[in-house]
């Protein structure tokens, strides 16, 4: 750090010593991204010390100056005749006392500002981290919901006897004919609309089913086997298997009906996701199990498996 005395004439017309206020409010430029720099807090703490020390030195220097003036006067008038000079010395002392009091007040204000600066900047950083975290989580949840909808609409049509996926023949036929492209387009759009609606319905059903299942697991089996609740229940085979099936009284071991998904993850309901659960993992597995569960899946794209 250079002292203001070296500064350019445009900004600083008169040579000026570095003051405690300079140290208190100095602004450093940020170093560019990826470039090394000093730790900001360490620099701030050090600057505070420099400022306090500078203030102390200025005070001491003033006191010494007074002392010199007093001694000089003593030497020049050893008889002590100068009553006026004594009064001068007294008023000098008063100035010094007031200056010291002012410096103390300045220091308290500077300390308070410094403290508030640190607390607010910490609080802001914390708030920004929280917001960012929430944003990332929200994004993951939305992506996961979209994927689920897509999966459901892709996988579900077959059991209901609905037309196959867009990759299937009905979609391709009119295009191949090429006689009436507008009509083909319309048909395609209808098909897309149908699939979209179907996907939505399936998604709702799926969710209701999963929710009912979870409720059952918790209410009924949890009572009998409390330790089973702690482990998240897996999905029973077969989408047609309703919650009632799971309630089969003959089933001695409730978990025998359930089977873990291929990669060993348990299934959880989307809507019930605990904040601490890693969002990505649950997204992938619930989708996977839904399609695993007895639903034929013509060429389901593999990427749904690896969500994150």
């Amino acid at each position: 750090m250079t002292t203001p005395t070296n500064s350019v004439p445009d900004h600083q017309e008169w040579a000026r010593r570095l003051s405690p206020a300079d140290v208190h409010s100095v602004l450093f430029g940020r170093s560019g991204l990826g470039r090394r720099g000093y730790d900001v807090t360490e620099v701030d703490v050090f600057l505070e010390r420099v400022q306090v020390e500078l203030t102390r030195l200025i005070r001491e220097k003033g006191e010494l100056r007074d002392e010199v003036i007093r001694l000089k006067e003593q030497v020049s008038s050893p008889d002590g005749e100068g009553g006026g000079e004594r009064r001068d010395a007294a008023s000098l002392q008063a100035v010094r006392v007031l200056s010291a009091a002012q410096q103390t007040a300045d220091q308290y204000v500077a300390d308070a500002e410094q403290y508030s600066r640190r607390v607010t900047s910490d609080a802001r950083q914390h708030a920004e981290e929280l917001v960012e975290e929430a944003r990332v989580r929200a994004k993951a949840i939305v992506e996961q919901a979209e994927r689920l909808a897509l999966e459901a609409s892709a996988a579900a049509p077959a059991p209901n006897g609905a037309p196959a996926l867009p990759s299937g023949a009905p979609a391709a036929e009119p295009v191949a004919a090429g006689t009436d492209s507008a009509q083909a387009k319309q048909e395609l759009e209808e098909q897309v609309a149908y699939l979209r609606a179907f996907g939505q319905v399936t998604r709702v059903q799926l969710r209701a089913y999963l929710e009912a299942l979870l409720r059952d697991v918790e209410l009924e089996w949890g009572r009998a086997q409390p330790q089973a609740v702690s482990a998240l229940p897996a999905l029973p085979a077969g989408l047609n298997g309703t919650a009632a099936l799971a309630r089969d009284p003959l089933a001695k071991d409730p978990l025998a009906n359930a089977r873990p998904s291929a990669d060993g993850h348990a299934v959880v309901d989307l809507s019930d996701q605990a904040p601490s659960a890693p969002a990505g993992a649950t997204a992938a597995t619930s989708v996977e199990d839904a399609s695993d569960a007895g639903v034929p899946e013509p060429g389901r794209p593999d990427e749904a498996r690896s969500s994150r």
């Binding site: 003033g62 100056r65 002012q102 300045d106 500077a110």
Partner: peptide, 27 residues
């Protein structure tokens, strides 16, 4: 900084009514 420190202390001592024109911290 010694110079303005002296100046303001001198001013406030001799003309106390001027102190209220200034903020608490004079830095």
């Amino acid at each position: 900084d010694e110079v303005p420190l002296f100046f303001y202390s001198h001013l406030f001592l001799n003309y106390p009514e001027t102190r209220s024109l200034f903020p608490v911290s004079m830095m």
